[in-house]
Structure formats: C-alpha cells, structure tokens
Simulated assay, not measured.
Amino acid sequence: MTRVTVWNEFRHEKESTVVAEIYPDGIHTVLASVFEDAGFDVTTATLDEPEHGLTEDVLANTDVLTWWGHAAHDEVSDEIVDRVRDRVLEGMGLLVFHSGHYSKIFKQLMGTTCSLKWREAAEKERLWAVEPGHPIADGIDEYIEIEEAEMYGERFDIPAPDTLVFTSWFEGGEVFRSGCCYHRGNGKVFYFRPGHETYPVYHNEDIQQVLVNGVKWATPNDGPAPAFGNADPIEAIDLSDERTVH
C-alpha cells in the first residue's frame, strides 16, 4: 500500500473565515480523505508541528509527499527542506500544489525562481489534458472546467518539464503550464496548479482524480538501484594504468 504524507501550511484556514468555510478542518484533511478513499495509507503533517511534522522517521516511511503552502514559505526550516530533497533524490515522490511553486523545496529541486504572473478575479479556467495518454490524465476528459480560479500566467520560470500533462487557459486570456512532471535523482516530482484556498477546487471530483493519479505515478517502483563512485569492471580489463590523480 502506498504511504502518503499530506503536508499543509495550515495557516489560511485558521486566519480567514472564507477559507475556513471551504476547508473547516484544513486543506490537508480534505486531501487526506481523497487519498484514503483511493486506498492509500495516509498521514498528515503541518507547518507548526515540531520539525514541521516531517521527522526523519516520517519521511523514511513516506512513499509520496504532497505539499501545499502559500503565506509562510520562509518559515520552513532549511534543514527540513534538505531532508525532503534528500528523500526525493533517494526515490520518494513529491506532489507540489498551487502556490507551492514558491516553496523552498520546489525552487531547490527546479533550480530557478519559479516566478509567474497571477490575478485573483474568480475567473473561469479550462485545464486541458495535452498529454491524454499519460497516467496522470487517466479517467479525465479532454479538459476540466473550473468555474472560479486564481489565474496563473506565463512566463512560468521553471525548467522545461520532462512531460507536460496539463495546460490551463483562463477567462482573462492567459495560459499556463499547469501539470508538470519531472525526475530528480530516483524520485518523481509532479507540479499541479489548481488549488487556490478561497475556491473549493479540491472538492472537484475531476481534480481529485488527477491528485490520485499523481500519487500513483509518483510512487517509487522496484527498479534497480543505481550504483555510483569508483567501480570494478564487469569484463576483464587491464587495471595497470597508474596515471590516476584520485
């Protein structure tokens, strides 16, 4: 059974009545329920817990970590960010949602500013499945229509994705790369744009399907573990060369 840890900043829900009405127990509890219904083994963690809830033991027992943050990216400890990065490189999957594009962990894994255009106007979004054969698009129609969304627009300062699964069009005219897949070390990373806190996006069944698909895609497999460093030859060769400087 895939072990999922749902991480949430969990600040807006405490400070905004608008957000609390949509997610009274936190965004993480809604996401956890979606993943539990899909048959995953789910735990949650939040910013204000000791070590942000991401202890070495928690991460060692996590196959896929999901990340939602917005207002307090700078409060996330660099030590914890490095800990999460190391687990991704080892093979743990990472799903980064919406404003998590500015999280320390996503920017570190991308190596760019991850900046973009944005606008809050409760405008319509059409989320187009531009790679319909990808596992993350499984069970999704040609597009998902979201009646109210925060606009994110290009240019999105990220490396070119290994695979672009979804592209968004917004009522105001902008477009955005909204579903981006990457490989980092042995781990898989999926950035998924929808999820603004003042709109009930995570209650949308199609969005929930994408999230479940994303966890399945990012779950580590049983492929061979790569070996690094000085290596003995597989075939018999002459090892008498003494010109090494190592």
Rank of each mutant, 00 (worst) to 15 (best):
Y199F: 14
H203W: 05
K216D: 13
E197T: 12
Q209L: 11
E205R: 11
V212I: 13
G214V: 04
N230W: 13
A218H: 04
F228D: 10
I207W: 00
R193Y: 08
V212S: 09
E205K: 12
A231P: 06
R193H: 10
D206P: 09
V201N: 08
P194E: 00
P200D: 07
P200C: 05
D222Y: 14
P226I: 04
T198F: 09
V201Y: 01
G229T: 06
H203R: 10
T219H: 12
P224R: 01
V215Y: 00
H196E: 04
N213Q: 04
N204R: 00
E197W: 02
F192S: 07
K216I: 05
P194R: 00
F192M: 07
D206E: 15
G229P: 11
P233C: 08
Y199R: 02
N221T: 14
V201M: 06
R193W: 07
N213A: 06
Y202K: 02
H196M: 03
R193F: 09
P224N: 04
A227T: 14
E205D: 15
G229Q: 03
P224D: 03
G195V: 06
A218F: 01
F192C: 06
P226Y: 05
V215F: 03
G195T: 05
N204G: 04
I207Y: 02
W217A: 10
V210E: 05
D232R: 12
D222L: 13
I207F: 04
N213H: 01
R193G: 09
V212N: 07
V215P: 08
W217R: 05
E197G: 12
N213M: 02
G195F: 02
T198P: 08
R193N: 12
G214Q: 03
Q209F: 03
D232L: 15
P220M: 07
V210W: 00
W217S: 11
Q209S: 11
N230Y: 13
A231Y: 05
G223H: 09
I207L: 11
I207Q: 03
P226G: 11
N213C: 02
G223W: 07
T219F: 03
V215I: 09
D232S: 15
T219S: 14
V212C: 07
G214F: 01
Y202W: 13
Q208K: 10
G229I: 03
K216H: 11
D222Q: 13
N230Q: 13
E197S: 15
L211I: 02
K216V: 07
T198M: 10
Q209I: 02
D232W: 14
N221V: 12
G195L: 03
G223N: 06
G195N: 05
H196A: 11
A218Y: 00
N213K: 00
G223Q: 04
N230A: 15
F228N: 10
R193Q: 14
D206M: 14
N230K: 15
N230E: 08
G229R: 04
H196D: 00
D206R: 04
G223T: 07
A225Q: 08
V212M: 07
E205V: 15
Q208Y: 02
E197K: 02
P220L: 07
V215G: 09
H196R: 01
H196S: 08
P224A: 06
F192T: 05
D232Q: 13
